[in-house]
Design a protein around this nucleic acid. Structure first.
Lengths: 372, 372
DNA sequence: GGCTTTTGCGTTAACGAACACGCAACATAA
DNA sequence: TTATGTTGCGTGTTCGTTAACGCAAAAGCC
């Protein structure tokens, strides 16, 4: 590897001059510059990141902007854990990470957090852009030269360093695939529950599901954030059940609300239909007769505690998860390597789509899914 | 951050002494050592990797030991691509990677490759240990101080820096889960085709499948490496088909052999049973009647070209894949970061278990599954 | 006791880049 | 002619660590 010294020697100038030309600072004559640049190209000179860092020990200060940890049934504590893990591993190299939590249902609160970040002038930003419009404004203010990594949700029309998260479209397709197997032989159409608020992430799941599901798909838009909402949801579901329903797909973490509804509904109605462990999925039926009296298949997302409970009950058939902790970890790592090494890497890093069923649920630890 | 100088000053010795004590080299008295170590603990001294690297610009030379690229239907060219990608990204920091290919069915050839590696004295080794006994011997010769990363297959009783690959047990469970859905209502037992040669990776897939499958599971052990083998396999399958078969699971990439057998068998027999696209999986049946005359479900591994073809024909229902390119990339990355940063990281890094179906096959590029 | 060897530890020059400093050379002005 | 600026570029120090070197003092040997 050629060094500054090599370039300087070959160009017949001092290393100081080369340094000034490399960084375009101080004074130098155009002729010298041209000569030095030619030599740099000839020797394929690339600055040594190590020496550079050593000499000018700029800190690598990251801003981590996430919804409050307890929101979405505590979901956001998981990426946070990944962030902390990465921070611990890299703090020896001067990495600093400061977390800014915001209320993901309150644009003003996001703006407050964003202002704090802007004031702190971080070297990189890890952001879960749950409020797209506000995120856009923030990013415009932040400027081009601060690398940004999105986790969980991607944004259109913006080119951050990377998006790290699930391939939401594919996961929707997978959900449809599984649903198709679950509801084979069942009469009726497929029901999808999607939140009212637009979210690219969740819309993609829906799109993937739709594209892959051959049967009729009906979409209900409703978000549950209060008891009242839950009543509204129940009404909407009641309406939907005027027709036959073959299966239900929930695009966010609220599958447990539907599970609750279904259980109270069936309790009210025809009493004991093999629930809890003896549901239609059971492998025991392989080689036996097809299940006619099975419960309505339910497929959803994320291992939040209430979903876990209903899956233990056997009332949720499939949950797809996206390794939120890994997203936090990978995001910090990515930013660090960018700032440290100028590393670029792919625009999109997809985290695995884990398939959780009542049978393998126990293998997914309560806090998060993490190897070792 | 405390530096060598700080420690030296506080302990009343020179930095040279501290350096010797830190690295346990050269001469120093036990008393001084104790004093210095106490100070290091007090100041929480950690060596600065940057300065260390700068001062001692050791190269990071990696040995990459993989089966020949064309083996297993060209499978091994995929991890190799990942290795090359990582190499390109990190060569600016002094990373060098040399590849040693071996015939994975020839222990002597592995030994030849291993000897070359030993002679080259690499700083780290990336290894796909397809011949466990030989790998063990090689690793013993290599010594403890050279970090080793396994990809694809893990080895018992050895503690390498990391294993990067699929969670094979879980993937077997997932296969069983999918199989259970596919063969619901079909009479008979489940057939598993596993290679004769023991391989922890494939055995785990089998174990996972077995543990999760509730119905009866019959195992056929056979490897196809020649036309003769294919005849043997056909005989074994003929035998198995004396009883009813509900579905077939293949633990390695040879699902296409079974597909071939099944097609020629059904061509010989009852003629047209809705094959090719109209198989039992189709979503179209959702809401319709259960499929009685469906073909025998077939689940296997890896997107090697012949598997891809049979899946296009609709004769393979599910293929599970493991992102071989990512394994190569992550492996090199991991070794580099170990050597460079002393980074430890988890013993096991699992790559995603992708689920490929006839319907989403087109989304998996021919060469490999890679984002961007 | 004189001699060599060993032991313990300090000194110092790299390593590659950053940057403050300052010295010439030349131009301009008084 | 001398004072004052400006331009272009070289010097020297710094970052934290490594490793070669070297110098004493202690220890071993005849």
């Amino acid at each position: 590897m050629a060094t500054l010294k090599d370039v300087a020697a070959r160009a017949g100038v001092s290393i100081g001059t080369v340094d000034r030309i490399v960084h375009n600072r101080g004074r130098f004559s155009p002729e010298t510059a041209q000569r030095v640049k030619a030599v740099m190209k000839e020797l394929d000179y690339r600055p040594n990141v190590l020496a550079s860092r050593l000499s000018k020990p700029r800190r690598c200060r990251l801003a981590v902007i996430l919804p409050q940890a307890q929101q979405d049934s505590g979901y956001w504590s998981l990426p946070l854990r990944g962030v902390e893990r990465a921070h611990k591993a890299l703090e020896g190299l001067g990495l600093q990470a400061k977390t800014y939590a915001y209320d993901r249902f309150d644009a003003a609160d996001f703006r407050r957090a964003a202002e704090m970040v802007l004031k702190d002038k971080p070297d990189g930003v890890l952001l879960a852009p749950m409020i797209p419009q506000e995120a856009q404004i923030f990013l415009a203010q932040l400027g081009e030269d601060v690398p940004v990594v999105f986790i969980d949700t991607d944004l259109d029309g913006i080119s951050p360093l990377a998006y790290i998260g699930q391939d939401s479209y594919q996961s929707g397709r997978l959900a449809a695939r599984l649903m198709g197997l679950l509801c084979r032989g069942l009469p009726g159409r497929l029901l999808v529950l999607a939140p009212e608020a637009r979210n690219r992430h969740l819309d993609n799941r829906l799109a993937g599901f739709r594209d892959f599901a051959a049967g009729e798909v009906a979409v209900i838009r409703s978000s549950v954030e209060s008891d009242h909402d839950q009543d509204v949801l129940a009404k909407l579901l009641d309406d939907a059940f005027q027709e036959d329903v073959a299966g239900i797909f929930v695009t966010d973490a609220s599958a447990h609300f539907v599970a609750e509804y279904l259980v109270s509904k069936s309790d009210g109605e025809e009493s004991i239909q093999g629930r809890s462990g003896n549901h239609g999925l059971s492998m025991n039926e392989c080689g036996g007769q097809s299940g006619a009296n099975q419960q309505i298949p339910l497929v959803g997302y994320d291992l939040v505690p209430p979903n876990r409970q209903w899956m233990e009950q056997g009332r949720i058939d499939f949950l797809l998860t996206q390794r939120p902790e890994d997203q936090g970890y990978a995001g910090v790592n990515r930013l660090f390597r960018r700032i440290f090494f100028q590393e670029s890497g792919p625009r999109v890093e997809h985290t695995p789509i884990d398939i959780v069923t009542p049978e393998n649920l126990a293998y997914f630890p309560h806090t998060s899914y993490q190897v070792e």
